[in-house]
Design a protein around this nucleic acid. Sequence first.
DNA 1: TATGAATGAGACTTCATTCAT
DNA 2: GATGAATGAAGTCTCATTCAT
Lengths: 219, 219, 219, 219
Amino acid sequence: MTVDAPALDPPGTRPSGGRRKGRTPSTVDGRTVPERLLDHARILFAEKGFEGTSVQDVVAAAGVTKGAMYHYFNSKDDLLYEIYGTVLRMQMERLETFIAQEAPVEERLRAASADVVVTALENVESVAVFFRSLHLLSVDKQAEVRRERRRYHEAYRGLIIEGQRTGLFREDISPDLAVDYFFGCVHHAPVWWHADGPLSPGEIGDTFSRLFLDSLTAR
Amino acid sequence: MTVDAPALDPPGTRPSGGRRKGRTPSTVDGRTVPERLLDHARILFAEKGFEGTSVQDVVAAAGVTKGAMYHYFNSKDDLLYEIYGTVLRMQMERLETFIAQEAPVEERLRAASADVVVTALENVESVAVFFRSLHLLSVDKQAEVRRERRRYHEAYRGLIIEGQRTGLFREDISPDLAVDYFFGCVHHAPVWWHADGPLSPGEIGDTFSRLFLDSLTAR
Amino acid sequence: MTVDAPALDPPGTRPSGGRRKGRTPSTVDGRTVPERLLDHARILFAEKGFEGTSVQDVVAAAGVTKGAMYHYFNSKDDLLYEIYGTVLRMQMERLETFIAQEAPVEERLRAASADVVVTALENVESVAVFFRSLHLLSVDKQAEVRRERRRYHEAYRGLIIEGQRTGLFREDISPDLAVDYFFGCVHHAPVWWHADGPLSPGEIGDTFSRLFLDSLTAR
Amino acid sequence: MTVDAPALDPPGTRPSGGRRKGRTPSTVDGRTVPERLLDHARILFAEKGFEGTSVQDVVAAAGVTKGAMYHYFNSKDDLLYEIYGTVLRMQMERLETFIAQEAPVEERLRAASADVVVTALENVESVAVFFRSLHLLSVDKQAEVRRERRRYHEAYRGLIIEGQRTGLFREDISPDLAVDYFFGCVHHAPVWWHADGPLSPGEIGDTFSRLFLDSLTAR
DNA sequence: TATGAATGAGACTTCATTCAT
DNA sequence: GATGAATGAAGTCTCATTCAT
């Protein structure tokens, strides 16, 4: 990954379809060097912040050298970028599954909304890092990440529009604003939620999606 | 603030009930040196992030020297801490006003909710910096800030509990979780909102408070 | 000198006409920190090359810390740039003195030519560094240095043109090419000359200027 | 060149009188891997400097991998060393041809002098790299290169001495110094000359050799 | 009050080279 | 013959903070 990838693709994790030449990549417990680097980077960034974590911290945690890291990633930025990408891709895929289901739009929106809360909390580190540190990325990478997020926003908005067209949801609310309203509680959750607290991701997902759906169907 | 203040009090802005010896603090346009420092720090922190802004950047923008800054503030941290304090105090004061009003709890909560959206957007820089950079403060200062925010949370929660007790609001929702639900959209707004976009703070405040109240009174 | 100076002016050596505030700059044998840095940088760059000399080498030789160096210079580049500037300014001043003298053009050109050889050899380190390392400067600084050198070239060329106009020098040679011909031997001298060799700068200056003048007045 | 060659001999270009086992070296357009590496190294070193060019840059330009480069060359230094060798050998051969001609010494010196200017400009990249980067070579290789250059210097000097002995050239000039005088303009030409400028190598060679010969025959 | 010189630790990154395959 | 993963040392620069004046 010496060249900036256009897509959000974690290096070293691709199927690598083909001949393997040169020294065999080292693995620990079946995890490759770039995988281990991303794992530890995610944890450390969430713990101490992106700026508070040095490259040295990351490579020490992953048990490799700095040189190895720069063999797989162009920069410290790149680690952040890949972490974002992983979450973004996963959430997009899940959303598309919910959208495509056979069910009333109300039910599909409720399920998708609960699910995004759950996955945000199950990846609470990545999401926390995301909103704290996006502004530290290079301009190019910020733009790429925003583009991905925009696509997600629009897919989700489609459900709301569908609900309004079919008369299920109120129409006095801009669909865009409704999306921003709901994703506020999703993206802000990492600020107050703790894994060892009393509430499970599932419970929170239920509550938040219910509150949101009830406000859309009010009146 | 050479001496650690117990409360979040901006130095140089106090009624100045004390030592007034030696030279009068220099002012420009009636603004004192610490005021100018905080102003420019807030703008720069929002623009380039707390870590991306050097002390040199701040003092250059404010037209003073580093020595002057360290005369009024103990550290770069202190600037951030004071910026938080200003917003927190203001929002707390406004919330208390709404709580104390003579009106049905539904109306007081709706007004307070719309208002906090408006003031968050009118101080969009401070709020953005807040959630991006809180983790960069020293542990002590983080604790102090969280304490303040907790007091705010509890005051706001009081309105919800009052509404539930009087039968106005549904009771199947934990008041704490309801607060976190609503403040998600408030605190996340700086991520997507722009001052030169189509929606005014007032419009957004109306929409968000309506959606929230409708979900509380649903069923 | 936090801001790139438009002119080639060694920082910390300016008359500094005015109030002196803050800590007094430290000096050793009456030499300020930036002066010492430039002195040792020049010697080290000539000895080990610009790339072969680390910033650490320079500050250690000058007896200061890296931080101090970056207080006075923006970059390692800047050191090189200032070294060039010192030589360029000195040579330009000397050339202008020779041009302004009351004497036949033949005599003024001979004297100026001998002198530039002598000063090049007396500053053999700076000149050697100049031609080895100019390409390592930032594009902007390269352009500035070239501009200065161009001015020097044109001033010197003026003497040749004057000699051609008055019939003293042959006219079948382009003045520009004659300048490049002569400055070849000047700028190349640092490659082969050694201070402890048999020939003094003065002897070499005499020989080279004589050869050059004889070829201009030939036929 | 896995074994240190005593002479400056480009590897992979030898008549290949030896081991021809295993796979045939891959060629592109009839050029072997080491030839392609040297070609691109020369161009890149001239463009961005020896230090500014990484081994990765060179192998990427040549379309091979780092491993392949280290199969043919011991080090990055080696690339530079071979580039020098090519030019030095060629110029020595040409000089010997001119020396051996049947013609008056004045004519042979003029022809040799014009020719060395032309070949220096036709190999402007190599010559520029030579004088910029010689000091970056290992001490051993520097000594070897200097030895080669010394042989060239002495051969050329022989022509001047011959001219002085036969009474054609003035005798008040040290032959060594005369050589250094003339090779100044030769070696410095890459600093100011551009292939797309108004003057051809031939025109410059004529002018420079004429000026030099005229100064030797003056009086 | 205010200056700005000086510190010193640490950050990110580059790169020639080695080596198992 | 050739690959490319991995190393490890060094390099340039930034920056919050201190302190003599």
